[in-house]
Simulated assay, not measured.
Amino acid sequence: MRRKWLILLFILVLFIILLGSVQAWAEPVPLPRVDLTIDQSDQPQEVVDSLRLLVILTVLSLVPAILVLMTSFTRIIVVLSFVRSALATQQTPPNQVLIGLALFLTLFTMAPVYQQVKTQAVDPYLAQRISQEEALERASGPIKQFMFKQTREKDLALFVNMSKMDRPNSKEDIPLTVLIPAFVISELKTAFQMGFIIYIPFLVIDMVVASTLMSMGMFMLPPVMISLPFKILLFVMVDGWYLVVKSLLESF
């Protein structure tokens, strides 16, 4: 009998709680309202501020492209993709893991450059000691210096000649529109060279396994199925991720 009263009391309390929740949800909840209007202005400064905001939003939309093409991200993600292809593990590690690792390795390798940009451009601009144009010019300096260090002269000369610009007297005379594509193809070449070296030991394992299966007459057994455990074992025994990441960091 006591147990029935406890169950009835529990049901009553639960009904009261649900009733209070329904009443709370029934009350109107104030929501923020976003208002975008275009009005006329008699002050030129307001128009300039609006145009600056539009430029900033445009630059923010290009941040992914800047991250991929003006940092060490390109080389790192291509080399990590080669590692996964050489292991023949399909989608292991998944793309999210490789991109996340490449992103944090990029932040690690680019940290000195970002610190220079912060010291030379961002902090003075926030303190209103320099203009926006001067801040952009100062910020491009460390980034261009990093890209010049990783760009081959042959690739840089290609785009200088194709742009039909005057022969530059110094590195400061080379615009970003010429430097960025030269930097990208240099990074791709370096990444493919590292990927070729990574492929060699796994290719040897595939050849040994395929020759062994053929000599045993097992033509219907896929060599990849047999070589995959040996490749993973080799990669783990030599601490492959440590060696790959170490080589990537030292290449910069």
Rank of each mutant, 00 (worst) to 15 (best):
V117N: 13
F252T: 09
L233Q: 10
M220S: 13
R152Q: 12
E250S: 09
M194H: 14
P229T: 01
S50F: 11
F15W: 09
P32R: 07
V245Q: 00
V63D: 05
E153Y: 02
I16A: 06
A191G: 06
Q120F: 07
L53E: 02
P181F: 06
I205H: 07
S140W: 01
V59C: 02
I16S: 05
M147Q: 11
M218C: 04
P175H: 04
Q116G: 03
Y125S: 04
L203G: 10
T119H: 05
M207Q: 07
S81Q: 14
F104L: 02
L62E: 02
L18T: 03
K154N: 11
V79H: 01
F230R: 01
G20C: 10
L80V: 14
P175M: 03
L12F: 08
R33Q: 13
G217D: 08
M194F: 14
S21K: 00
L36Y: 10
V78I: 15
F15V: 09
F252M: 11
S215L: 12
Q115H: 12
T37G: 04
L228R: 01
L31N: 07
I200T: 12
E27Y: 09
R138I: 03
K171N: 15
E153F: 08
Q40G: 08
M214I: 09
S247E: 12
S21Q: 02
V55N: 00
F82I: 07
I11A: 15
I226G: 02
Q132W: 05
